[in-house]
Design a protein around this nucleic acid. Structure first.
Lengths: 281, 281
DNA sequence: CGTAATTTTGATCTTCTTCAATCCTCGTGG
DNA sequence: CCACGAGGATTGAAGAAGATCAAAATTACG
């Protein structure tokens, strides 16, 4: 059902990650390490996301751009954290999709959350000694890893950044509640619809739509099934229903929401939980 | 299915809740939270719980005992927070059981978490402007309500308390992940078993077992159903299975785990998430 | 070009829901 | 002390949603 063959990770990025840079040093070099063949995504996704939360200024932006400039390219299934493993660092994801998950003895996997470009995993890893779940990549990814000590230094020096990341962690929790509601009470098709709505909104700030209105969608049907607590067969059939109802187009790892209003209506999707009050838009 | 008729709340407690007490004033009145032997349950449940987390000292204990001494008795269905309502305060529950929940348009309710005696709802209400879910009592309860300003004062004056409450909030999040795993992947009977294991452990510090080994259990089958995403009929049948297997006794609002080892085995219950190990800052 | 991963399809079977009725429990008022 | 009523628990029967199994078609990718 789901095998874990952790792949290697290749160092990649423009500035070296060797020693601890004082925050004051602001390398004004090439700021967007990931935007090489992305035609119009020059903005650092971490910055884009936190800017949308409306809580960070120039100082924080510069610092973020600095320490996200040395990233590692990782293959699918590369594991960032393992259940029971110690948490002495923190990760930012610049490209790709990762997920948190736990396995049961019978081999079934529950995905507990997605980590999308620009998102971080996991603020509480700074406080907690060991992780209670796994985090690994679903697709190819670009990952920045920061030691606990270094991260604590950043947070201390940049309280606005700290606040922004705390806000992001609270959004995480709100998402967990939504997923619980989703899995517990909604029909398979509404459940899947809701998830698609959520992912689309979460991708907005970091993955500009292509001319045809589609966004990259690296999550396969097995992962969707393990997210929604249903079988892949059923995910497949529900997807076909959504396509037949002309609500979505999903092919070649790209997703288009054809009729957003109708999709959000069947899903009873209310995006407020993803943008709690600070952001007025 | 589930109607919400908010009941009144009756002031109760020995010291007045009128004006703001400086933390230094320590009311030595009776109020019960003063016994030494932790055989019985004379201990203030909030203190008992945070003591178990091992992060608070005498100063925090005294402060907690002080501000939990004026509580209100509330009837079942009394609502502490409503979806969309502003969050200008915080609550501690001294007795009874409350739950967070959300409703869907079709009338179904998903319970998103329980608040047990000694637990708080909700630290992030201090940061967030409005709640995205409801919180109300499932049973009779004893509730302490503290304004945002007052609470922030406490947290500022007692950083150890602040840390303890942050730790409690992280446990909340871990519980949410467990529930998602539960609902998403486990069979109805394992799901219910897991929930019973969890509640038993969470009650340990605040509700000493009676001689027959039972603990108070004020959650009815409708609430269990809305927690686990199943119908009351099925909850009832699964409960009967668990009784028939001689795993539990549940009657007259009291629960006894007859065979803990076996129950935890079928549930794949691992209590570590309820008692995480802190790492040094 | 060939192999692995992923998606799709059909058929069958199980778990759980729904509906509707009955029974029990417990608090309340007479 | 008993009768009453309401919420809660229990039961049975029937039906639906989704799981499972097995295989084929399609796609990704070295």
């Amino acid at each position: 059902m789901f095998q874990d063959h952790s792949s290697g990770a290749v160092e990649r990025g423009s500035c070296a990650a060797t020693s601890s840079h004082p925050i004051e040093h602001l390398p004004q070099k090439q700021v967007a390490p990931q935007a090489e063949h992305d035609e119009q995504a020059p903005l650092n996704p971490v910055v884009a996301r936190l800017k949308r939360l409306g809580m960070i200024g120039d100082k924080e932006t510069t610092a973020l751009e600095h320490f996200t400039c040395s990233a590692r390219a990782c293959a699918p299934n590369h594991t960032l954290f393992s259940e029971g493993g110690t948490c002495d660092h923190v990760c930012f994801l610049l490209e790709g999709v990762a997920c948190r998950y736990r396995m049961l003895a019978n081999g079934s996997r529950q995905i507990l959350g997605y980590i999308l470009p620009g998102e971080m995993c996991d603020l509480e890893f700074l406080t907690i000694g060991e992780s209670d779940h796994n985090v690994s990549l679903l697709t190819n990814g670009l990952v920045v890893k920061i030691s606990r000590a270094k991260m604590l230094g950043f947070l201390y020096a940049l309280p606005a950044l700290h606040q922004a990341l705390i806000a992001a962690a609270m959004i995480d929790k709100a998402i967990l509640r939504q997923w619980l509601l989703n899995i517990g009470q909604r029909s398979a098709s509404n459940r899947l619809s809701h998830l698609l709505c959520e992912i689309t909104v979460r991708m907005q700030d970091v993955a500009p739509k292509s001319p045809d209105g589609s966004i990259p969608f690296g999550i396969n049907q097995l992962a969707l099934a393990d997210t929604l607590g249903m079988s892949t067969v059923h995910v497949n059939r529900v997807l076909q229903d959504l396509r037949a109802a002309n609500l979505i187009v999903l092919r070649k790892r790209r997703l288009t929401i054809v009729d957003r209003d109708r999709l959000e209506a069947v899903a009873e999707f209310e995006p407020r939980y993803l943008r709690p009050r600070q952001s007025a838009g």
